[in-house]
Every structure is written in structure tokens, then in C-alpha cells.
Nucleic acid binder design. Sequence first.
DNA 1: TGTACATCAGTGAACGCGCGTTCACTGATGTAC
DNA 2: TGTACATCAGTGAACGCGCGTTCACTGATGTAC
Lengths: 204, 204
Amino acid sequence: MKKVMRSTTRTTRKRYHHGDLRQALLHAAREMLEEQGPSSLGLREIARRLGVSAPSAYHHFKSLGDIAVALVEQGARELSTKLGAVPNGNGLLSRTGEAYVEFASKNPALYRLMFGEGLTEETRRNTAMIDLRNTAFHIIRSRLENHVSPADLNSGALFLWSLVHGASLLLIDRQFDTGNRKLAIRRVLQFAGKGIGLKLTSMQ
Amino acid sequence: MKKVMRSTTRTTRKRYHHGDLRQALLHAAREMLEEQGPSSLGLREIARRLGVSAPSAYHHFKSLGDIAVALVEQGARELSTKLGAVPNGNGLLSRTGEAYVEFASKNPALYRLMFGEGLTEETRRNTAMIDLRNTAFHIIRSRLENHVSPADLNSGALFLWSLVHGASLLLIDRQFDTGNRKLAIRRVLQFAGKGIGLKLTSMQ
DNA sequence: TGTACATCAGTGAACGCGCGTTCACTGATGTAC
DNA sequence: TGTACATCAGTGAACGCGCGTTCACTGATGTAC
């Protein structure tokens, strides 16, 4: 909008007003997040990265926690978009699962943050946060709608969500040591369709 | 071993030497862990809870990180024991899965700690830590051995592990709002046997 | 049984650090006239 | 086009805090003789 340069200067030099500090803060925060992990997010370092004083952030966010929440929102939006963009066709569900895991493994720290790591206990459990996380669940659920009996819909979606959530985190944590990650994930997801071929239903 | 009381006192009163401070520290740490979450574990407060000075901990642990690692070891041991104790019989795998999720939901913060939350990035990824986590994987894998073709063994175990890991964490995070948790988990696990009844295998 | 002494397991004080946040301020911007 | 002024978005200094850890110490214990 206003990229105004002071008329006396021609080179880019430090301007007193930043222009879009809010965005810049989020960007730096996200960078820091992925470099240091969710629990190391720090307001002072975020500001430092931008060459800006720490208190300046308070003109844009109420607190450090607010910045974290904004990142979570960003993540939820991106994940939804990504899942929504999976093209229709054969194996839609499976490809959706792959997209999910791919998002997590490309944004590992953000993904962990989205599920509450590094946030205080109160923030983690607040309902807005839970709703944000649920975005993914609802997409999965809606994709399952035409394929599964209504009675199975909730459990089925929860099953799939658990699966991709678990696989994402194990992947992020380098918990399995496969050469080809994509292939490994694909094989794991295939089980979601056919099961492991065992009756697990008989109880006690 | 040595519950020696100073002969001049008859009431329990503070003794200069604690007796088994190491164990006491771990116990207090675990208590604190479950109350405040993995990233709030603090050496000073652990000591405070025991009415003991903070530096005393250094006679028993190299650092705060060491305490956390000891807790993770404790958790891994308990989880293995619990999974190992599931009685043989029909639906063994399913009951193992339920036991897994039950462990996680009874020790939510410990479970999160076991998977690296609150530990520094280096600790999280160190191989000893990864091995500890793998304990569960190996039990699952061995239970699957007689039921699945060798080619499917690794993927199958990873599938199941992802599923129970994901379900555990979603449960811990209060991400689903079911009345009967046990039943919900059971229904989710049932899908592991039969799948969702969709061919997900056809790709692209 | 008594004593000297090495060793162990505590202690309080202090160090150094970096954090989130508040405060009173100032420079820059945009607008009304 | 110029000027006064309100508002906005930065600043440096400081506050208060609590943390993990180190240090030189001391009280207690157990053992050799």
C-alpha cells in the first residue's frame, strides 16, 4: 500500500516505521519456530531477528502467547487449504492422508505447536485451539461421508485422524528410519483401507 | 535398608541425610510433570517440593535434563511391562492397543515427555531416547509376527503404532468429546482389523 | 567400646542469564483547515 | 501549498522474576584400628 521512501534517501535504509511489522513478526516467529522448536519461541529473539526493539511487538500482539496462537491459526488455514486442494478421483482419501502427513513433515515444529506443544496448559485446552485442530478432522470426516455407514462415520474419521496424526508425529520425531518416507507412509496408509486382515473385534 | 533414627528423637523429624533422595526426586519430578506439563519441569521446584535445597539434586543427577531422561526411562519400562502383561487370547492385539492408550491417558504428561516434549532438540533426537520409544514398537511388532506376512510386518507394526500413538495424543489433548473413552477407543481400534472397507490402494 | 578420619550428602549464598512486560518517550505520518 | 496537531508505531531503560548451576562449606555416617 504505502511503500513510501523518504525523499532524501535512495538506498533502502532503516525506516522508523516498518510498514508491516505484524506480518514480519509472524514470519520471523515461524522461522524461529522451525529452527528451535515450539518451546523456544521467544519474543525478544523474534524482535532481534527483525532488528526491531522487543516492545514494538506489543503494538501488534497482546503477548507472546498471542503470536503463538496466530501461528497456530496460520497453520490450521494452510493445512485446510492443502487438504482441500487434493484433486478428486481414485484414492482420494489416501491422497488426503498423504497430504496431511506431508504438511506435518514439512512444518514439523508448527505442527507440534498446533497440537499444543510449547503453549501453556490453559491455552492448549482452550476451545478455540481445539476448534482449530478440528478443522482437519472435519475435512477427513466429510471425505468419508459417502463411503461409510453413518454409524461408522465418527469412529471411522477418528480412526483415520489418529492414524495420520500418529504417523506424522512419529515421522517428525525420526522414529522410523526408512529410506523412502513417502513410500513408507503410503504403505502404512494402505492398511487403513484393508486393515491388517485380522479380526480384532472379539473382545475379552 | 537404614531407617536409622537419631536416638535422641522419637518423632519423625527432618534428618540431614534424606535416605533415598534420588528416588524421592524422581517421584516429585513425576508429580510435578503431571501437574504442570513437560515443559514446566523445574529443578528448583522439584527440590522445593521435597523441602530440600536445589543443589542437593546434583549429588544424584548431572543436570535437570538427566532427571527428565530418567523419567522417560521409567515411563518406557512401565509401558513395556503393561503391554507385556496383557494376557494371551482372543483379540490380543486389540487389547494391547487398548492398554497402550490407557497408559498414555493415565500418564499424559509423561507420555508427551517420552516423545520429546519439553526436552531440548538434541535430547529429543538422541538415539538412546529413540530406542526407549522403540520399546513399544517392538512389542507391537512381535505380537504381529504370527499373523501377518513377513513383507507386511514392518509396515503393519508401524500402522498400528501410528494408530495408537495418534489416538493417545488426541485423547490426551481432549480432542474428542466422547462420553465413554474406552468404548470410543475400542471402536477406533476395531478399524485396524477390518479397515474402513474402502480400497485405498489404487494410487494416482 | 572408643576414637580418628575419610567419605558422603546435605546446605546457603551467589552468579549470570535471559526472559516477558511496562513505562515514559519520540519520531513519523496523515489529516483538517 | 503550508501548517498545526492528533494519532500511530517505533525506542531505550528498567522491573521483577525465576531459572540452572557452581562454590565453599558443614553435618552425618561408616569404618579401620
